[in-house]
Design a protein around this nucleic acid. Structure first.
Length: 358
DNA sequence: AAGACGGGGGA
DNA sequence: TCCCCAGTCTT
């Protein structure tokens, strides 16, 4: 056989005996494949599994997703992160209803035009579902190819992406695109792992240029240096006759579309005495009568990919409803759980409920 | 071409 | 701690 296809055949053979049993692999429904691919973006299989089952249980097809409220879609995404995935999923479902008559499009170009679907996901869907010859290039593929061919061009550059995509197309057996794509990703996830891969049992050992030169640990190369900034959040859990107040986070910041308690953000760390003297605090509680305040959680450090949040929760009982709260959403306590909230707030609420039942 | 966007798990 | 995970969108 041609040397070009040999790698693909080895990967496919390896795949047949080593692949994991995963629910989305039982389906050939493009909708189901789509949902699984979006959930698995930047997300491990174990982390996404429950979300996939719940999400497809509640939204089994394009029509059910399209007709849902965005808040409910976000609720099903709560805790998973990268919430634009959920918003885009919802928007794309509506697009499919309107532009494609509710039928998931089959053309690569049409699929790529949907919100939240980029090169990787479009290739995954058309190859898995219809065996179309588009190579997938995800984190696994970058790693496998970088090592196999000792490619040291950084993967997070335009040049790098172009070169790896081209190489992925050359390595792929076009007649077995779906299985090949599944195989090379699974191989990266289970065998050619980022740290300390067991190269001695690797079926591509003899062909791996990085193995030959002892550079497996150095590949792939990234030039990316993400820097994080610190932010200081002060959440006010306001209590008045069985209700509290929430607001929906807006665009151009983290957690868009999720709900949270009234928030005061400060430039610097600040204790409660300092917080009380801020304009925002005064404005929020003018007309609230006497405040009965307790801090249920000391400062919590919450780490995101580009931010570190130093957060304090204050539980504040008020005597009257201040004017400023009219711009917030009044919610009975027992309804808080209906709203999608950031993980950080979910943890706070769990702790609060735990303390109540102790 | 760079940054932003969550949260979790492994070494 | 640092790195990475079946990436995409915005600036």
């Amino acid at each position: 056989m041609e040397n070009e296809l040999e790698v693909s055949h080895i990967l496919q053979t390896w795949y047949k005996t080593n692949k994991r049993m995963l629910p989305w692999r039982e389906s050939s429904d493009p909708y189901i494949i789509w949902i699984s691919e979006i959930i698995l973006q930047q997300t491990r299989v174990v982390q996404g599994m429950d979300y996939f089952l719940r999400f497809t249980g509640r939204f089994p097809d394009v029509a059910s997703l399209a007709s849902a409220e965005e808040d409910e879609v976000l609720k099903y995404w709560q805790g998973l992160g990268y919430y634009s995935r959920a918003r885009n999923l919802h928007a794309a479902a509506k697009e499919i209803m309107e532009k494609f008559g509710g039928v998931f499009p089959e053309k690569h170009k049409d699929i790529l035009s949907l919100k939240g679907i980029g090169d990787y996901t479009a290739a995954a869907i058309v190859s898995f579902v219809w065996n179309k010859p588009y190579p997938v290039v995800d984190g696994n593929v970058f790693r496998v190819l970088a090592r196999l061919f000792a490619m040291d061009v950084p993967i997070d550059t335009t040049q790098g992406k172009k070169q790896f995509t081209e190489l992925a197309g050359i390595v792929m057996d076009p007649k077995q695109a779906g299985q090949h794509n599944q195989a090379i990703m699974e191989f990266g996830a289970l065998q050619c792992v980022p740290q300390n891969p067991d190269c001695e049992v690797c079926p591509l050992k003899e062909r791996c240029m990085a193995y030959a030169s002892g550079t497996v640990q150095d590949l792939p190369v990234k030039q990316n240096k993400t820097k994080t900034r610190a932010r200081y959040f002060h959440y006010l859990y306001i209590i008045y006759r069985g209700q509290t107040w929430l607001s929906r986070r807006g665009k151009k910041d983290i957690w868009e579309g999720l709900y949270e308690f009234p928030l005061i953000e400060t430039e610097k760390p600040m204790d409660f005495a300092g917080l009380q003297e801020t304009e925002a605090f005064r404005k929020l509680f003018t007309g609230a009568g006497r405040l009965n305040i307790s801090s249920d959680m000391a400062e919590v450090k919450h780490v995101l990919s580009h931010q570190v949040l130093y957060t304090t929760f204050y539980r504040v009982e008020i005597e009257k409803i201040p004017e400023a709260l009219n711009s917030y959403l009044a919610v009975p306590y027992e309804d808080i759980e209906r709203y999608a909230v950031p993980r950080l707030i979910h943890i706070y609420l769990e702790k609060l409920n735990g303390n109540l039942s102790e």
